[in-house]
Amino acid sequence: MINELDSLYREIILEHYKSPSKKGDLPNAAVTVEGNNPLCGDELVYQLEGNPECITKVRFSGNGCAISQAAASMLADELEGKSAAEIITIITKLKAMMQGQPLDEEEDLGDLESLAGLSKFPVRVKCAALSWNVIEQALKQL
């Protein structure tokens, strides 16, 4: 179990939690979407600049556990410069990863791949899922 803990809280996750790179406000955001996990109180706000063809800038704010905040930070890192369709593909892969499905070798989800250990902690999947649930809402409004 202690080893599984290490796979849940990978070093890279703790780094994103302690020093998130995309935390902040976007005063000219095209969309601002808020989400929370009513069961645990995690809160997340994503702000996106750009259009469905290209999301140019992403910022987030919120508070919650290491997993929720690190996932939000890692996802924000991956989104900038991508289209809505590309982002949906990433989210689909993340959801499959949460079910324990390994990624294909050629796939590259960047730091987000460190979330793979979550599949062994079903009660914590929702912590990470908050970030892509909010992004899915945001893309619909873009």
């Binding site: 179990m1 202690i2 599984e4 803990l5 849940l8 809280y9 645990c40 995690d42 508070n63 919650g64 556990c65 290491a66 997993i67 929720s68 902690f121 914590r124 912590c127």
Partner: peptide, 11 residues
């Protein structure tokens, strides 16, 4: 965050 505390204690 309490969830992180709870997960480690559970382990």
């Amino acid at each position: 965050h309490p969830h992180d505390i709870g997960t480690v204690l559970d382990a």
